[in-house]
Simulated scan of single mutants.
Amino acid sequence: MICKNCGTDNSDNAKFCAYCASPLTTSSEPKKPQNRNKKNNNNKIIGIVLAFLSLVLIIVGGYLVLNGKIFKNEISVDAVTLDGDYEMDGDRYVLSTNENVIVIPNVKSSDSSYELKYEIEDTTAANIKQLGDKCTVIGLKETDANLNIYSGDKILKVVKLSFKDKNLDELSKNDEEKTKQEEKVKTQVEQDLVTCKYCGKKVNRSYTDKYNGCCSEYCLTMYEGNQYEQWEKQQDEHYFHEHCRNCGECLEDDTYGDLCESCYLKACEDRTRAKESREN
Rank of each mutant, 00 (worst) to 15 (best):
G200E: 09
R36G: 00
D165P: 12
E182L: 14
K129S: 13
L156D: 01
Y218E: 13
V189Q: 06
G152K: 06
L156Q: 04
C17I: 04
R92V: 15
H243C: 01
H243D: 02
I128A: 02
A145T: 15
D122Y: 11
C268S: 07
Q227H: 03
D83I: 06
D133G: 00
G7P: 12
R92Y: 01
Q234G: 11
V185I: 13
V65Q: 15
Q188K: 10
S113N: 15
V49C: 03
F240C: 01
D165Q: 00
I120S: 00
A267H: 06
D12T: 12
I2K: 14
Y211I: 08
T25A: 02
S112Q: 07
N106F: 05
K154L: 05
N42F: 13
T25N: 14
R92N: 01
L66S: 10
I48M: 08
N174P: 00
F240A: 12
T97D: 03
S109R: 03
S277A: 15
L156C: 02
N246V: 14
F71Y: 13
N100K: 15
S110F: 05
D153P: 01
C214I: 11
N100Y: 06
E237Y: 14
A125G: 08
V80S: 00
C260Y: 02
L161S: 08
Y207I: 11
C263F: 12
V194M: 10
G61F: 08
E183W: 02
K160Y: 03
I45S: 07
T25S: 11
R36K: 07
L24A: 03
T272I: 13
E183I: 06
K44D: 12
I120F: 12
G47I: 11
Y223T: 01
D169M: 10
N98D: 14
F71C: 02
